[in-house]
C-alpha cells in the first residue's frame, strides 16, 4: 500500500476505539455496589494492570497505569486479529476494492496491526519518548545527563559510558517493537503457510497453531506492557 499504511492505521484505531468504548461503558456504569459482569471483567483487568505497575513503579501511577492498561488491551486486540481466518478479510477487501473499480489483484490489506512494524514502532517510540520524560521527571535534566555520561564505568571512561548508554537506550525501543512484530509476523506467516496446504491437511496444524497463538497473543501484549513499566520505572528511579 501507500507509505501511509492506512490499513494498519484504520484497523488499529477501530480496535482501540472498541477497547475504549467497552471500558468507557464500564466506567460510566461503575458502581461501588455489586459489580455486573462487564464491570467485573474490566475491574479484573484494571486491578491486574494496577498491581503489575505497583510492583515495579514506585511513584504516582496516575499516568503510567492507564498507559499500561491501554498498551495491554490495545496490543492484545491487535494480536487477536491473527486468530481470524487469514484470508477472510483480504478476500472481502478484494471484493470491495474490485467493486470500487480498482484491480482486485492490487487490493492489499494487513489485518494484524502488530504484524506491521509501523504500529509496533509507533508504540515503542512513544515509550522511548516517555522514558526520557520520566528520566527528566525523576532525576532532573542534570541528573539524567550525569548518569548518562558517567554511569557504568565512572567519569574517567566517559566515551565508553556514552557508547554503552546510547546502545542501551536505543535497544529498548528496537527490542520492544521487533519482539512484538517478529512474533506476530511469524505467526501470520505460519498461518499463511498452513493455508497453502490442501484443505484436509489444514485442520490439525491450523487448530494447533491457533491454540498456541492464544498464548502468544496474551503473552506478547503482557510482555510489552511489563517492559514498558519496567523501562519507565528504571528511568524514573535513581540507581
Amino acid at each position: 500500500m501507500s507509505a501511509w499504511h492506512i490499513d494498519t492505521l484504520i484497523i488499529s484505531t477501530l480496535l482501540g476505539l472498541a477497547f475504549l468504548t467497552l471500558f468507557r461503558i464500564a466506567a460510566v456504569r461503575a458502581t461501588e455496589g455489586v459489580p455486573g459482569k462487564l464491570q467485573n471483567f474490566v475491574e479484573i483487568l484494571v486491578e491486574f494492570v494496577d498491581n503489575s505497575v505497583k510492583d515495579s513503579f514506585h511513584g504516582n501511577r496516575a499516568f503510567i497505569a492507564p498507559l499500561a492498561l491501554t498498551i495491554f488491551c490495545w496490543v492484545f486486540l491487535w494480536n487477536c486479529m491473527d486468530l481470524l481466518p487469514v484470508d477472510g478479510i483480504p478476500l472481502l477487501w478484494a471484493q470491495i476494492y474490485g467493486a470500487m473499480g480498482h484491480d482486485p489483484a492490487h487490493a492489499y490489506i494487513r489485518v494484524v496491526p502488530s504484524a506491521d512494524m509501523s504500529a509496533t514502532f509507533a508504540l515503542s517510540i512513544s515509550v522511548f519518548i516517555l522514558i526520557f520524560v520520566y528520566s527528566f521527571k525523576g532525576k532532573g535534566v542534570k541528573g539524567f545527563t550525569v548518569e548518562f555520561l558517567t554511569h557504568p564505568f565512572g567519569a574517567k571512561l566517559l566515551p565508553a559510558n556514552v557508547i554503552l548508554n546510547t546502545v542501551e537506550y536505543l535497544a529498548k525501543p528496537m527490542s520492544l517493537a521487533l519482539r512484538l512484530f517478529g512474533n506476530l509476523y511469524a505467526g501470520e506467516l505460519i498461518f499463511i503457510l498452513i493455508a497453502l496446504l490442501p484443505w484436509w491437511a489444514q485442520i490439525i496444524p491450523g487448530l494447533g497453531w491457533a491454540i498456541f497463538h492464544i498464548l502468544v497473543v496474551t503473552l506478547q501484549s503482557f510482555i510489552f506492557m511489563t517492559l514498558t513499566i519496567v523501562y519507565l520505572s528504571m528511568a524514573y528511579e535513581h540507581h
Partner: peptide
C-alpha cells in the same frame, strides 16, 4: 476510564 473504575 481509569479514574471512575478505580474510584468505584
Amino acid at each position: 476510564v481509569w479514574p471512575p473504575i478505580t474510584a468505584a
